[in-house]
């Protein structure tokens, strides 16, 4: 009787293990098959608008803005187009990793030849302190179960995912206001944040890629109070000094006109429409002052952009219901 019980118990253990192994293999295979090979397609699960860049006419973009959600909420390509005639697109996605930033730029350069790449640097510091646990968890989970990242691909399987022209150029609109007191970690210091090797490596790969293609790289940090600090600023300063003084605009140190009582949607993590407009105005001015970009308003080649601009303003208007000067 006892033997029967033991064998019954083992039968259950073995069957549970076999079931779990089969389940895992099925999940892994399905996840792997569903994971697109094109980085733009991968990004589009998190940021549907990003694929809109594929329907832009080849070699029409002056600038691409790369980064995580800070860029999606912080830079308004249509504002820069309206004011300075700059044709740009946000190659940004939620939680973009340094490696994804490189992959996506590499992919886009197959059809576009931007003169300038604007790269937000916040994401090169994901790896440390407060984010370590999250990222370890996220990466392990993402690697072991690709289905989590690729699950929305059933939409494409069901019947192709057509790329639509994006009037936002992958800018994420938000007019929420959740004020904060600004960045408390911007007191001057000589401390230099130690960047992780893999982040530096990926940043260097982007620098090299831009060099090879003759593209000017501009590093920026969009105003943000949650993670950014002076020691991180120093880390980027150190990096640019070691790499031919790549321009670096830290908008947490330069006054771009951001008022933290009205310009952030979530207490300093992201800009809202009003904050993003100020950031875009500053960035646009900087780009036309320093590079031969912009002034495409009225050009026949950019007729579609004029329509996009009209649709964009019809949809979102201007911050605080005002008019653009």
């Amino acid at each position: 009787m006892k033997n029967i019980n033991i064998s019954d118990k083992w039968k259950k253990v073995v069957s549970a293990v076999v079931f779990l192994v089969i389940t895992y293999v099925v999940l892994y295979v399905v996840g792997f098959v569903m994971t697109p090979k094109n980085p733009l397609d991968r990004a589009s699960y998190r940021t549907t608008d990003i694929r809109g860049i594929t329907v832009e006419e080849a070699n029409t973009l002056d600038v691409v803005n790369i980064g995580h959600s800070g860029v999606m909420y912080g830079i308004i390509p249509m504002e820069m187009y309206e004011k300075y005639g700059i044709a740009s697109y946000n190659l940004a996605e939620t939680s973009q990793s340094p490696r994804e930033a490189y992959d996506i730029l590499n992919e886009v350069l197959k059809t576009q030849s931007p003169k300038v790449v604007v790269l937000n640097v916040d994401q090169f510091f994901y790896d440390k302190a407060e984010n370590r646990l999250r990222f370890a968890f996220q990466w392990t989970l993402g690697r072991a179960f690709p289905i989590f990242g690729a699950h929305a691909n059933w939409r494409r399987v069901l019947k192709g995912e057509e790329s639509c022209r994006s009037i936002n150029k992958n800018y994420n609109f938000s007019d929420d206001i959740k004020p904060c007191d600004g960045n408390k970690r911007m007191d001057k210091t000589d401390d230099v944040y130690k960047m992780r090797k893999s982040s530096v490596k990926n940043l260097e790969k982007i620098v090299r890629l831009c060099d090879e293609k003759g593209i000017k790289l501009v590093l920026v940090e969009i105003p943000s109070t949650i993670y950014w600090s002076y020691s991180r600023h120093n880390a980027i300063e150190k990096f640019v000094k070691e790499h031919n003084d790549i321009p670096f605009i830290d908008m947490n140190l330069i006054d771009v006109g951001v008022d933290w009582s009205v310009d952030t949607k979530d207490a300093g993590d992201h800009m809202n429409f009003s904050g993003a407009t100020k950031v875009s105005d500053y960035l646009g001015q900087y780009l036309v002052d320093n590079y031969s970009v912009g002034n495409h308003r009225g050009e026949e080649k950019y007729a579609a952009w004029e329509n996009d601009l009209k649709a964009f303003r019809d949809k979102y208007g201007y911050p605080n219901g005002g008019k653009n000067e």
Binding site: I22, L27, T48, E93, T94, H151, A152, R155
Partner: peptide, 23 residues
Amino acid sequence: RWTIYIALLLSVLVFGAYGAGLY
């Protein structure tokens, strides 16, 4: 029954409206 369990799990993971961006 294993097919039913795995199909249910797959449908939750694939068709679940979760994750940033789209949902």
